[in-house]
């Protein structure tokens, strides 16, 4: 059986990244859009960790960056969920098509 190398990890992370972008563009539910953003950030974390482990194992830059990305993603999600809940109070919906007050 083959060892899992950097190629497999990078393929997985790239697929995750594009699933995230696809979900962000096609989904109309705000919470699902937020989940797509989390997918993008997770693919970034996977990238950092695999680069750190396989290419630059002598330093820990990538792992530290991952820790900070996870923390900030949590903070971002907290603010985003607060905004979405507040929006739900006035629009009675979290469908992005319903929030159409601002148009040119």
């Amino acid at each position: 059986m083959r060892e899992i190398g950097i190629e497999q990890l990078l393929v997985v992370s790239t697929i995750l990244f594009f699933i995230g972008i696809y979900g962000f563009i096609t989904r109309r539910n705000m919470v699902t859009m937020l989940m797509s953003i989390e997918l993008i950030l997770n693919s970034v974390c996977l990238n950092f960790i695999s680069f750190n482990k396989f290419l630059h194992p002598d330093k820990l830059d990538g792992i530290f960056f991952t820790l900070f990305v996870i923390t900030i993603a949590a903070a971002e999600a907290a603010v985003a969920i607060a905004i979405i809940i507040n929006l739900y109070r006035s629009f009675k919906s979290i469908d992005i098509e319903q929030a159409d007050e601002l148009k040119y």
Partner: peptide, 22 residues
Amino acid sequence: KSSEAAMKMILLSAFSSGIMLF
């Protein structure tokens, strides 16, 4: 209007910083 604007801003800025992080 404020909450709609804030929703657009936080989702898009998180998305763009995700792309930049990649």
